[in-house]
């Protein structure tokens, strides 16, 4: 009566096959190409990369001259994540707890603007932040205006990034807030915690998974973004992403661009693994 079964290891691996193929085709093969490019020799002709293998691109990429740009990129990404968290948490909490039957509409309101082209929206910010733009004129009324506007500053880039990645923070936070059992807050009050300590000792640990997921979803793409700094930033706002983009676009140095991409990726992976080791989870 025992039906014949494929060995357990086989069936498990067969079930993995579609996922494995998908990962291989769309993630690993492109990734492997980038790694290979990074060790190839640069060709100024149409091939861009040729043999022999060399580590020259890594020697160039690790030049201390790039350190300030690396630091700036990390600072932008960290500030953007922090800003998204500060803006996103109250919003997600409000929608989850007090949205009532308007929840779906409120969530849609967060998402709908993002159906328009990112480029168009960043160009809109360009107009807003310009010297003659709305932001500068309004601030000018209270004496906070700035000659020439806020375009081409670090602030403009962080603002643009925050605006661009906010939904990635709000959605996971919303799910976490929505799942959070509100009775815990009442219990905390009953047991003598004040508002502040309830927030830090009950609410925050409760929504921690959402905070982590949202932060990762914002931090990683913000560290690699190149469109925002290029359009809203000036000569002193170039990021690692924009340098990588330059190496590919002008067609002038694919190995260097690839090496920088690999280094950036390695850094992100290190951050994830270190974080994963401290916390309990893998990701």
């Amino acid at each position: 009566m025992a039906r014949r079964r494929a060995p357990r290891w086989l069936s498990a691996n067969l079930l993995l096959l579609p996922t494995g193929l998908w990962l291989a085709l769309f993630l690993l093969v492109p990734l492997a190409l980038v790694v290979q490019y990074s060790f190839a020799t640069r060709d100024t002709g149409p091939l861009r990369v040729v043999l022999p293998w060399t580590a020259q691109a890594y020697r160039t990429a690790l030049d201390p001259a790039f350190l300030p740009i690396f630091g700036r990129t990390l600072a932008y990404a960290a500030l953007t994540t922090a800003a998204c968290l500060l803006l996103g948490f109250p919003l997600a909490w409000f929608i989850a707890r007090h949205g009532g039957r308007h929840r779906n509409a409120l969530l849609a309101a967060v998402l709908v603007p993002f159906w328009a082209s990112y480029l168009a929206r960043i160009y809109a910010w360009k107009a807003l932040l310009d010297g003659d733009g709305l932001v500068n004129r309004l601030l000018g009324l209270v004496g906070l205006g700035r000659d020439g506007g806020f375009l081409l500053t670090d602030g403009a880039v962080v603002l643009g990034l925050t605006y661009g990645f906010l939904p990635f923070m709000v959605l996971p936070l919303y799910v976490a807030c929505e799942r959070f059992d509100h009775r815990l807050v009442e219990a905390s009050y009953d047991l003598g915690h004040g508002r502040v300590s309830t927030f830090f000792r009950v609410v925050l640990p409760g929504v921690r998974p959402g905070v982590l997921a949202g932060s990762l979803l914002v931090l990683v793409p913000a560290a690699g973004d190149f469109v925002t700094p290029r359009l809203l930033g000036g000569v002193d706002q170039s990021t690692f992403g924009s340098v990588i983009d330059d190496q590919f676009r002008g067609g002038n140095n694919w190995p260097l661009g690839s090496a920088m991409a690999v280094l950036l990726m390695a850094l992100v992976v290190v951050v994830l693994v270190v974080r994963g080791r401290r916390g309990e989870d893998v990701l």
Partner: peptide, 18 residues
């Protein structure tokens, strides 16, 4: 494992200078 396999699959991406 997959990284090694992918390196193989991508190996034809680069050739000698013409």
């Amino acid at each position: 494992f997959f990284a090694l396999a992918a390196q193989g699959a991508a190996a034809c991406g680069i050739s000698e200078a013409p």
